[in-house]
Design a binder for these strands. Sequence first.
DNA 1: ATTAATGTTCAGAA
DNA 2: TTTCTGAACATTAA
Length: 279
Amino acid sequence: MPELPEVETMRRGVLGLMGGRIETFEKLPCERRPIGITPAAGPLGKRIVGRTIERIDRLGKRVLLVLDDQSRLMFEPRMTGLVLISDPPTIEHLRVRLAISGTAHPELLYWDRRGLGSVRWFSEKQFEAEFHAGRLGPDALDIDPAAFQATFASTRQPVKVALLDQKKVAGIGNLYASEILHLAKVHPAQPCHQLSTQAWKRIHGCMVEVLQLAIQYEGSTLNDGTYRNALNQSGGYQNHHRVYAKEGEVCSSCGKGIIVRSVQAQRATFFCPKCQKQK
DNA sequence: ATTAATGTTCAGAA
DNA sequence: TTTCTGAACATTAA
């Protein structure tokens, strides 16, 4: 579930671990099918124990601990993963614990109810090979309007589907794609190659605006309550959604349109047919 | 019992 | 080559 704002909130929540030393890596006994840990937990532990956490980065929807040998420990929460410093929602879905010394909080936890996420370690070289060579596009908060337009202008895909392609731009997920296009007044089914430079500038600006505001509110916790910040608290941006999961409600922007739910690429899309006309 | 859910990736077809 | 579909991963709540 977490998209860029939720993962950024997790990252900010664990920033206090910077400068700390990793004392142990523990894959917790979890009765469910184990999450992906690569390399296997034993060898991974050998790589990281004794290392210092030099920096904590985010790339798209992943949190990265940058260690003092420039290797990376990557947490990818996918649908239900959480990176926490205390108080996991349940004990039985707790997957990984790192003991940390020299910081205010003594541990970092990875919790994952569905277990679709992963914890992976990359040497500096492996990391560059995987992620500088196009596995993920640039982060959505780290791309300028011109590069943004250049990325999308040539494809015939519907704009909402293209925004979800992490190889183009990393970080936008299903919820924020609908929110961004509503603020930009662009129809989600509009083919990318038909959009003007002006429209791309608007989409870029609205993308930054929506993502930054959502980060300020610490992300969206939906009805299932899964998403929590690093202290196991709810986000607040769900109270500011414009269209997501608001099918049948009156559009808050124009006051006239009724929010419609459609399906694109097997995923729900929400939009206002009055504000977001196809051209 | 069935369906859908904030994510990603792969195979196969058009 | 590009685009689209379905399935898979696993869990839970409606």
